[in-house]
Nucleic acid binder design. Sequence first.
DNA 1: AATGAATGAGTATTCATTCAT
DNA 2: GATGAATGAATACTCATTCAT
Lengths: 222, 222, 222, 222
Amino acid sequence: MQESDSIIDHLFEDEKLTDKQKKIIEAAIDSFSEKGYSGTSTSEIAKKAGVAEGTIFRHYKTKKDLLLSIIAPMLAKSIAPFVIKDLYKILDTKYDSYEGFLRAMIANRYVFLKHNLPLFKILIQEIPFHPELKEQFMEHIAKKVYTRFESLVVYFQEKEQIINIPPASVIRFNITTIMGYFFTRYLFFPDADWNDDEEIEITIQFLLHGLSPLAKKEDDSP
Amino acid sequence: MQESDSIIDHLFEDEKLTDKQKKIIEAAIDSFSEKGYSGTSTSEIAKKAGVAEGTIFRHYKTKKDLLLSIIAPMLAKSIAPFVIKDLYKILDTKYDSYEGFLRAMIANRYVFLKHNLPLFKILIQEIPFHPELKEQFMEHIAKKVYTRFESLVVYFQEKEQIINIPPASVIRFNITTIMGYFFTRYLFFPDADWNDDEEIEITIQFLLHGLSPLAKKEDDSP
Amino acid sequence: MQESDSIIDHLFEDEKLTDKQKKIIEAAIDSFSEKGYSGTSTSEIAKKAGVAEGTIFRHYKTKKDLLLSIIAPMLAKSIAPFVIKDLYKILDTKYDSYEGFLRAMIANRYVFLKHNLPLFKILIQEIPFHPELKEQFMEHIAKKVYTRFESLVVYFQEKEQIINIPPASVIRFNITTIMGYFFTRYLFFPDADWNDDEEIEITIQFLLHGLSPLAKKEDDSP
Amino acid sequence: MQESDSIIDHLFEDEKLTDKQKKIIEAAIDSFSEKGYSGTSTSEIAKKAGVAEGTIFRHYKTKKDLLLSIIAPMLAKSIAPFVIKDLYKILDTKYDSYEGFLRAMIANRYVFLKHNLPLFKILIQEIPFHPELKEQFMEHIAKKVYTRFESLVVYFQEKEQIINIPPASVIRFNITTIMGYFFTRYLFFPDADWNDDEEIEITIQFLLHGLSPLAKKEDDSP
DNA sequence: AATGAATGAGTATTCATTCAT
DNA sequence: GATGAATGAATACTCATTCAT
């Protein structure tokens, strides 16, 4: 929460926000992530932001508007690395091993999520209750990200670097394993002692072995 | 939701519930899982349950009481198989391979979660907003389940059936991979075409290879 | 409140009360006197009395019924000594001085009020809000008591024992002075150190001198 | 009640009240004095004041807040003449007889109470149910007023104008006699025919004779 | 742009009362 | 007679939103 400023400056860099607007968004992120959208009142946000109640509604027509205007840039930035050339770089030049790609992606998303934790919490907590959010999420993440990811998986499957199972399953294992670490690390046990480097290394090894084609062969031929 | 009756009959079998009380709980589960605790009004629950609003408060002092009295048995039943002899069976007789244990546990929990989906949704959605819930969850799941699971992991590590990494990480991989399937299957894409048997088989293979000590050896000795 | 039992046994001696009924009345007196009629809920009374909520309404059609059935005997007993022969005794034989009468009356009413303090509190607190109560009070106290009292005052005025001002004023001075002591003693400063005998003596002297015809004369003829 | 406006303007002159706020206070005084605090609903006050129910809670956080904010200035103004120099005037210059003081004080408080009757009713009716009120009352009235009054009584006792009994008793006689008149006059029998001047004169005479030191002597010497 | 008073529908909860057992 | 589940109207209070300033 102390990093709210930077989050906002980063996530909302394109939009011109007045001082009060920034404070409203900060306060909203803070409260939404802590008590949920329904559990947070606009008056509470106003008080925390140090503005009059009416001011919120001058900038955001409704409370829901405020929520969406907070989540939208988060969604956009989430998929950023997948829609721009970064991914091509991975494919074309930099990393010609699946391991290389994995390490690059984890490093990249790890930093992003770490810096947008409260926003991320809001996103995953509110998605179930707001169909528009779910739709946007599906369209952006599920479609755009998935498509890129799929071709990438097929590419490495053809190079026989990963096992030959449905790409959807491969993607699922990747995401649940990586996000699983992230949830465990930051949402469930944020206060435990964590050796991030080691843990990430173990996680990468687990993924690589789990998806290794050799492993599969061994299992098949007695 | 159509199975609410059976859920209730099953989860609340010990308690003597009046007819109206059952209806209240059904309605509450339905609404809470759909719109969240904060987003659900007691008047809505009353209407859906076909009772007067006052009736709710005759049985549950507060709205939060209602929530807790719904989740408590869910938590208890969640850990049931881990605290009773079932686990010993797994260790002692039935399954002397990690694969055997894995298959048994997935089958068991899969059925349970499938039958308590709405309740499960409520649990994971509300935990972040209710410290008491988190505490109960930690105490029941994290402590009791984790302890059993850990000794089990060590046991199979000693039998050299799984890789020699911190048991906590092994447990994490198991849970995130299995739950990851469950979330994807029932919460994110419940409408997709799923071949459960195949998907579970793939998932088990992924886990086994990811945790296999052979894989590790191969990796270590070129 | 500890004396509730005795109050009830005494005030409600004529009526046949079941055990539960007694407990209801005790609880009602306790709560009404402490929090007022409006501020007391029937469920609270039921709980305090250790009976089911419905039981109250089996004996008293409404909550107000309960209030009235509590105050009615109090009102009746309040005027008892004024409507029976007691007063004639005072006039005829026992006390042929106003002082004698005063001492007798104070002693008599002092004991009565002291033993019915909670009931008395209820009476004076609720009268302003219940026209029926006010009516009953007027009819019983104001009419019956006043009439007796007036003839008594006139009697002593004729005997030149008290000053010759409107009897209504004489009665007012008597009542406000005596009740004034009682309020100060039991309602305002019940925890102070009180020497009742001395205080009552001073009060009687004050009344006697204030109403003395000599005093008046002295004051008139220098 | 018809004078509510003037009461408010007078009692709340220091505070800046919006139009609606004034109406809320008027309505609250009206209802509280008529049906008691517990017996009055906020919706009733809102309706009577011609404002939305929410408006009440914008200005007063709770219903009790409204009550206290009504009574506080009443308490303050009640003791006003006792804490400022007025009293010294009485002692120093104007009145060097107890009778003079008595007449001045009665005249002064008579006007005040007459103009604040509903507020006064609320005060005495609600004090028994609200410990904070009792505390405030004790602190303001019982302490400040009493202290001034006591030194005054001692002063006149030394001048041998009033009888030599405990000052507390003298004060009690004064207050109960004067308030007794006020209660009888305005609360119990407001509809009777009252000759205020005459009645007050009789009351003053009663007090003076009752407290006269001569009377005492007569009584002492056979 | 910003305020904050005002709103009225809505909130969780309490109430006196009823009624089948 | 006694119970306690059930009621629905009422309660104190909150909410998102509007609007005149």
